[in-house]
Simulated scan of single mutants.
Amino acid sequence: MKHKKDWNRQPAVDAAGDKIMADQNCAPSEVTAYQIAVELGCSANSSIHEKTTDWCRRRERESELAHIELPAGAEEEYRKVLTEGLEKNMQAFVRMARLIGATMHQSAHIPVMAANRRAEAAEGRAETALQICKKAEADLEAAHAEIETLREQLAEAEKQSWRLQGRLEQLQIEATKASDRVHAEAANPVEVVAPSEAQPSKADAEGSEQQQTMEFDLPDDASS
């Protein structure tokens, strides 16, 4: 249902009168304000009467216009012109549509190309980062291996240090003992007998006697 503010407008009255005239196949003067009011669903007030009169007057003037008959072939010629114009317009429309489509495709392709370039750049950066990570992992493994080697060398050096420390302590003990002996000998000196004054030992005396006996027992040939 139409809004109340749209009931009394002239275009609504004109449309209602044209519909009634077409449905009843009657002249404009035969259409009443009451019929138009019923068609519009409102009361036949003075506004409806005024607009119905205005509609009827305009439609009667239009019907009084002289009808001109078209010459033979005019309709066909007009149809041909319309057809050719339609064909040209259609061709122009197709060209325009293709141009618009190409422009839209190009416009849409530009962001795609830019996105592809950004994706390729991102892939390049990712590959570079991956190579850096691989090198860092290799360097880390090498560093771990070197640390392990240094730990082994340090453990061996500690063992050597303990051995040297033990040897040093042993030498210190021996040096202390030697020092103690030297101090003890210095505190208790031993008398030394000169070689010319020393008495021959029993073994030296027996050896001297044996040598003399051998000299006396030699044969004559040996003495000569």
Rank of each mutant, 00 (worst) to 15 (best):
Ala72Trp: 11
Ala72Tyr: 12
Ala92Ile: 11
Val81Met: 11
Arg79Leu: 08
Thr83Ile: 02
Arg79Ala: 08
Gly85His: 08
Ala74Gln: 09
Glu77Leu: 07
Tyr78Lys: 01
Tyr78Met: 02
Gly73Thr: 10
Ala66His: 14
Ala102His: 10
Arg95Gln: 11
Ile68Gly: 04
Thr103Asn: 08
Glu75Arg: 07
Glu87Met: 09
Phe93Asn: 12
Arg95His: 10
Arg79Gly: 01
Gln91Thr: 15
Arg79Ser: 04
Val81Ile: 12
Leu70Tyr: 02
Ala92Thr: 11
Glu84Tyr: 00
Arg79Trp: 03
Leu99Val: 03
Leu65Lys: 15
Arg98Thr: 15
Lys80Ser: 08
Glu77Met: 07
Ala74Val: 11
Glu77Ile: 03
Ile68Trp: 13
Arg79Met: 05
Lys88Trp: 15
Leu86Val: 03
Leu70Asn: 02
Gly85Thr: 04
Thr83Gln: 04
Ala74Gly: 02
Ile68Tyr: 12
Ala92Lys: 14
Leu82Ala: 04
Ile100His: 05
Ala102Thr: 00
Met96Tyr: 06
Glu87Trp: 01
Ile68Met: 06
Arg95Asp: 10
Asn89Gly: 13
Arg98Asp: 10
Gly85Arg: 06
Thr83His: 02
Glu69Pro: 01
Asn89Ser: 12
Met90Phe: 12
Glu84Ser: 00
Ala66Asn: 10
Ala92Leu: 14
Glu75Pro: 00
Ala66Trp: 15
Leu99Pro: 02
Gly85Leu: 08
Ala97Leu: 09
Lys88Glu: 08
Gly101Phe: 05
Gly101Leu: 05
Thr83Val: 03
Thr103Tyr: 12
Gln91Asn: 10
Pro71Leu: 12
Leu99Asp: 13
Arg79Asn: 06
Asn89Asp: 05
Ile68Thr: 13
Ile68Gln: 06
Ala74Phe: 15
Glu84Ile: 00
Leu82Arg: 06
Glu84Gln: 00
Gly73Tyr: 07
Ala66Phe: 15
His67Thr: 08
Gln91Pro: 04
Arg98Trp: 11
Lys80Asp: 06
Met96Ser: 03
Ala97Lys: 14
Leu82Met: 07
Met90Gln: 10
Ala97Asp: 03
Ala102Lys: 12
Arg95Leu: 10
Leu86Ile: 06
Val81Phe: 06
Ala74Asn: 02
Glu77Cys: 01
Val94Tyr: 15
Phe93His: 13
Met90Ala: 11
Asn89Thr: 07
Met90Asp: 04
Phe93Pro: 05
Met96His: 03
Met90Leu: 12
Asn89Arg: 13
Val81Leu: 13
Met90Asn: 08
Met90Gly: 04
Gly85Val: 01
Ala92Met: 13
Ala72Glu: 15
His67Phe: 15
Lys88His: 13
Ile100Trp: 02
Leu82Tyr: 02
Glu84Pro: 00
Leu99Gly: 09
Ile68Ala: 07
Gly73Asp: 07
Ala92Val: 09
Asn89Ile: 04
Glu76Asp: 09
Leu65Ile: 14
Ala97Arg: 14
Lys88Gly: 03
Ala97Ser: 07
Glu87Phe: 01
Asn89Leu: 13
Leu99Met: 12
Gly101Arg: 12
Pro71Trp: 15
Gly73His: 10
His67Gly: 03
Glu69Phe: 07
Leu99Tyr: 09
Phe93Arg: 12
Arg95Glu: 11
Arg79Pro: 00
Glu77Val: 01
Glu69Val: 02
Leu86Gln: 10
Ala97Met: 08
Tyr78Pro: 00
Glu77Tyr: 12
Met90Glu: 06
Ala97Cys: 04
Ile68Val: 14
Arg98Glu: 14
Thr83Tyr: 01
Glu84His: 00
Glu77Ser: 05
Glu87His: 04
Glu84Val: 00
